Amino acid sequence: MRPARALIDLGALQDNYLLARRLGGGKAVAVIKADAYGHGAVHCARALEGIADAFGVACIEEAIELREAGISAPILLLEGFLDADELPLIDRYAFWTAVASPWQRDALARYTPAAPLHVWLKLDSGMHRLGLSPDDFARALQQLSSDPKIGSVVAMSHLARADELDSDFSETQRQVFEAATRDFTGPTSFNNSPALLGWPGIRSDWVRPGLMLYGANPFPLDAPIPHVLRPVMQLESKVIAVRDLPAGEAVGYGARFTAPVPMRIGVVAMGYADGYPQLAPNGTPVVVDGVATRLIGRVSMDMLTVDLTDLPQAGVGSAVVFWGHQPLPTPSQIAQACGTSGYALLCGIKRVRRDYIAAPAAAATRDPAAAHALG
Rank of each mutant, 00 (worst) to 15 (best):
P3Y: 12
A6V: 14
A6W: 00
Q14D: 00
L18H: 12
L23Q: 03
L23C: 01
G24S: 09
K27E: 15
K33V: 04
D35C: 00
G38C: 02
A41E: 03
V42W: 03
V42C: 07
A45V: 09
F55R: 14
P74N: 06
I75D: 06
Y93S: 05
A98L: 05
Q104Y: 11
D106I: 03
D106R: 15
A107L: 00
A107K: 03
W120F: 08
D124P: 04
S146L: 07
M156V: 11
L159I: 12
A160H: 08
A162D: 04
L165D: 13
L165A: 03
E171R: 13
Q173D: 11
R174S: 08
Q175G: 11
F177V: 04
F177T: 02
A179F: 03
T181I: 10
R182F: 10
R182Q: 14
D183G: 04
D183S: 12
G186S: 07
P194F: 03
A195W: 02
A195S: 11
I202G: 02
R203M: 02
S204K: 09
S204I: 03
S204D: 10
W206E: 04
V207H: 09
P209M: 06
P209G: 11
L213K: 10
G215W: 09
A216E: 00
A223Q: 07
I225S: 07
H227I: 12
R230G: 00
V232T: 10
M233L: 07
L235Y: 01
V239C: 06
R243F: 11
D244S: 10
L245R: 06
P246S: 11
P246H: 05
A247V: 02
E249I: 03
G254W: 13
R256H: 08
A259P: 05
V261R: 14
P262L: 14
R264I: 06
G266F: 07
A269I: 00
Q278G: 01
D289M: 13
R294W: 06
I296L: 08
R298A: 15
V299D: 01
S300Q: 09
D307W: 05
L311H: 12
P312C: 11
Q313A: 13
F322P: 00
F322T: 00
W323H: 13
T330A: 12
P331L: 02
S332E: 12
S332G: 10
Q336E: 15
Q336N: 05
T340C: 12
L345Y: 01
I349Q: 05
V352S: 09
A359N: 04
A361E: 15
A363F: 03
T365H: 15
P368I: 14
